[in-house]
Each structure stands twice: as C-alpha cells, then as structure tokens.
Design a protein around this nucleic acid. Sequence first.
DNA 1: CTGAAAGCGCTTACAG
DNA 2: CTGAAAGCGCTTACAG
Lengths: 343, 343
Amino acid sequence: MAVQRGEGQVGEGARIRDVAKAAGVSPATVSRVLNNSAGVGEALRKRVLGAVERLQYRPNPHARALLSGRSHTAGLLVAEVDGPFYGPLYRGLERVLSEHRLHLIMASGRRRHEVEWEVVNSLLGRGLDLLFLWPEALSQEELRWAAAQGPKVVILGQEVPGLPCVALDHAHGGYLATRYLLQAGHLRIAHVAGPQGMQDAVSRLAGYQRALAERGLEVDPELVAYGNFRESGGYRAARELLSRGRPFSALFAANDQMAIGVAAALEEAGLRVPQDVSLMGYDDIIMARYVRPALTTIRQPLEEVGKAAALRALQALGYAAGTPQELALEVIERSSVRPLDSS
Amino acid sequence: MAVQRGEGQVGEGARIRDVAKAAGVSPATVSRVLNNSAGVGEALRKRVLGAVERLQYRPNPHARALLSGRSHTAGLLVAEVDGPFYGPLYRGLERVLSEHRLHLIMASGRRRHEVEWEVVNSLLGRGLDLLFLWPEALSQEELRWAAAQGPKVVILGQEVPGLPCVALDHAHGGYLATRYLLQAGHLRIAHVAGPQGMQDAVSRLAGYQRALAERGLEVDPELVAYGNFRESGGYRAARELLSRGRPFSALFAANDQMAIGVAAALEEAGLRVPQDVSLMGYDDIIMARYVRPALTTIRQPLEEVGKAAALRALQALGYAAGTPQELALEVIERSSVRPLDSS
DNA sequence: CTGAAAGCGCTTACAG
DNA sequence: CTGAAAGCGCTTACAG
C-alpha cells in the first residue's frame, strides 16, 4: 500500500534493485560498486557494471540527497539575470563549482526588498548546499538570519560582519575614478550615481566625494544625479544634469551601462566625448572596449570574485579548495577621457 | 543502525516528527495540514501550524522529491552564460516557471560538442522535471535520445522533428535584414556570419543569399566573413573583409555583438557609420539602442521565446498554462543605415 | 476526522 | 567479500 511508484521522470528508469537482480547480486553490492566503496570482487564488479550499462541505470539523485543531506546544488541571488554585469560572476562561480559537480541555480531579487526576501526563503526551502547572496536591499540582520538557517552562505558585494564575504572596495573604486579625472586636469566633475541607498552606489559616491575633498574641491550636490544602474538611467541622469545648467568638463558614471547611456544623451545634446566632456565608467564590461569612444573605466574582476566566492564556499563544505586570487580594482585607460587644456 | 542523521544542512532543522510531537498529533496529520489535504479539524490545524511556526519547520525537499518524483527544478543548456543574449531568454523562462514554483539551473555548453554532451548527461542525472536545450553542436539524434531519458524536453533555437521546439526563423531574419539594406539602395552588401556549421548562423547566411538572389544579384563569397558571435569576432571579420579590398557600402552582421565589433573596426579604418558604410545587426540587445550610431537591427523576441518555451513545458507537465504569443521578427530602424545616394 | 504502517530509492553499519 | 536490514524524511492508502 502506501505510495505507488511515482510517475515522475526520475522513477521511470531502472532502480538499483533491478540492476541487482539483473546482475544476480544484492542492491548493497551495486551501491558499493557505484560508489567505489570497499573492496568488491572484480568479477562481481564487472557483472554489476555490465547490468548498469545494459539497463541504463542512473541512481536516483533525490534518494541520494535525502540520505546524504547534500543536493549538489548551490543557489545564487542577484539583482537581475539580465545585463552584462552578472555574467562573468556566474561564470566564475560555475567554473569552480562544476569541478566539484555542483550546479548553480540563479534567481533574481529585482532590487526589491520584498522580492529578495521571498527569493531567499524559497532558496532556503530547497535544500541547497550553498547560497551565494548578492543582496541589494536585505539588511545585515536578515542576511545573518539566512546564514543561520542551514546552508553555507557567502555574501557578495558587501561586507557583513560575522559572515564570509567577498566584496570589492567600491569606495576605493569611486576614489580611483575621480582621482584619475582630477589628474587629467578636470575640476568640475559630475557624477551619475547608482540608486540611492544601495551599498555599492553609496560607496562609489563616497569615494568620489573623498577624492574631491582631498583635492580641496567643494562637492557640489547639483553635479550629482542618480540612475538605476542601467543604460536608461544613465541617459536620464545625464539629461537631468545638463538641464541644471551647471557646467562640468568630466563625468564619472557609477557603472559602464549608465556611462553608455550618458554618452548617448551627451551626443544628442551636441556634446562630444571626450572633446567636450570626458567620461569615466565602472565595471569594464566587454562592451566598454567596443563602444566609440572606447570607455575608460574601473575594472572590477567579477569572474575572479565568483571564483573566490566559490572557493570560500567549498572550503566551508569541507572540500580542499585553492586560495583565491587577490581582487584588485584597476583603471583601464581607453579613449573617453582626455586631459583638460588648462587654457 | 544503518544511516545516521545526516550532517547536511537539510537535516539540521526540525523534522515532521518533531512537529507532530510538539503538537501532540501524528506525522500524518502534520503532513495533511501542510498539504491542505482532506479535512483536518480546525483545532488541530491551528495547533499544528503553531508548532510548525515555533519550530521553524521546513519540509525536507529531498524527501518530497523522492516520493513525488518531482524536483521542481528545470535545467537550461545554453552556449554561454555571459553576454547580453541569453539574459532575456532566462528571464522569460524564469518569469513563467517561478509562478509554478519551479527553479531554473543554467549550464553552459561553450559551443563545444563534447561539453554540451557532458552537460546534458549531467543534467539528465539530476532528476530535473524539465530540460530546455539550446544546443549549438548536438545532433538531432542526440537530442532525441536526451528527450527519451525522462524529463520533459523543449528544444530552443532550432526545429527538431518529433520534439517540442521553440524556434525563430533565422533564414527569414537574414532575408529581412538584407532586403532592408537592398531597399535602401545598397547593392554591395557584406555579411559577417556566425560560426560555420551553427544552425542559426547558417540560416541567416542563407537568408542573406536568398535576398540577394531574389534581387538578381550575384552572391560574392569574398564579401562574407565568419565570426564567433562576439564583439571580438565582428571586429576581426570586418578587418578581414576590409583587407580583401572588395568594396561594399553596407554590412549585415549576424548579431548585434558582432555588429558593434564591426563598427569599432570600421571606425579604426577611418570609415564612418553610416556615412561610409551602413550597418545592420541582429537580436536587438539593449545596447543596440545606446551605441552611437544606434544600431538598426532585427529584433528577436527572446524573452517571449523563453515564456513560450516555459508554457509549452508546463503543459507537458500537466499544468494548465496559457498560450504563448506569436513570435515575430521585426526590423528595428535606428541610425546605422542610410539610403545610398544613387548618384 | 485521525493514526499506524508501508514504502519512495538509496546507503551503510552490522553480521557472517 | 557479500547480503539482510534499518533508516533518511516524508506522504498516502488503509483502518478505525
């Protein structure tokens, strides 16, 4: 009685007992052969493998997961699955994880607190081994709670005291970008920041302000506008900046996508990059090299971030994993910035 | 004896029997409450829910999957997780699937037969409910074999007789793009095709040739070069075309990423788009709207493709799902093509 | 309306 | 070296 054989896809194939019968051994022996455990007689081994092959037997992963408590799956929360940004991160994670036969589930929190929370809970309910969270709206409290729920958690994009994190120093990046522009002789530097309240956006803005202050320049709030981290946001923010009428000879956009939107708006307004306005991006997405003028930007090693996060997580799971590379930000000089004639 | 309580993350929380004990009922009753089955007395129901809450009980998904044969997870094979191309597809799939509490695993086949085959097998061994395959190198035989292994399979990007597929008519798209250029008065039209042997690339090339032939023009093989579907490939292919010395007034690139690489190469060679060379892309990635000049292109409704594929798969699983939209290709006119003066 | 029991497909400690 | 049995955490047909 009780449960009938499932109709599910998994149940359709041969079971271990079918293989055992076909090979004339016990299920335990089949299991041992498949898991390379203990010494199984060579003769039996061959027989079992033959039967496995013949019946196209695949062990039921759900049964294995139930027994071991391991699903061989990791989850990744990001702000969006679109866009050029998370691709390299995903790839870095996948490269390392797949070597350990771990798969990766990606889910989007859409930059909204409510959605992020729901996604994290859904991920927590799936019996994943690992959780990589790149939150945009969740509080540190909430992240710590999530980490207490079971799966190993690695936080990306920000430092959360008490949890394993892999973050880049966004404030430093904002500082580097701005200083670069300053060194090129620009004094009136506008900034298109990311969404207000988002950590990385806030930090880059802080870096921008610090560089200006260090140089003894006043930070003019009229030279700062906010965007959504996408092309459309950069486009709109640039138009807003232009409409304010405050002159600027350079502009630092908090990411490359917005920088490209900015460039479009500038051109529409009859301003040339870099002759009239120097433009600096952030991220170094692939496209940055190909847009005209090619974008000078701050490179974030996102694939390396993914690898580092994966390595750290694997260690937490008890696998012997290598040591991650140093994650350094770097100015990539291309053609969108030019020195200001001090004439 | 036998198995000890797992150390896995899943095993760490409360089990159904703990809840049952706390509520003073049997595990069966807890199960019924949680699954809203049958009529459970309201009083008990409350007690059970209270205990669930108190113990922070989460049913073990692996046990459920073992019993039901359903993992609530779908797999997606694509050529790369990077790049702007698959984002909208993933999003379309995810939007529909998540409404049915299905998660999505993405894996990259890297355009290599061997890797694709391995990935498909790995996916097949995971007890997934659904498989979405956008193959670049697998044969129709292999795809049919995969579909026979258990999970419901939907093929993307090409038609495979006998299997549910969601594909766009790439030949038609190539034809549309070329005809558009022809109608603008161009007669010498170069083509940067995708990798030789890949279905979509081959079809677009065929569409290009058909449009030329229809117009009574000879197809000059010297005007065709091949790229890797990425910016770098477009860049190199354009340089190759230029080095051949055959004149052309327009160029159709088999995707937007290559078109953007082409534009960079053209500009480096001192050629202006569209004044000197008209440029047509394919896909309509977000960036197409923002590069300068904004790219005239063929829009592929990839998010819709994802939704349609998800809907079809859900039907196969027996869920009542809606009917997908029509998937039409469309010329998006922007600024990278201009009529040829017939002077 | 509720519970005791069987069983999903595996793995592993125990016996031999 | 190999097998019989227990058990992972659930769900559901069967009894009551």
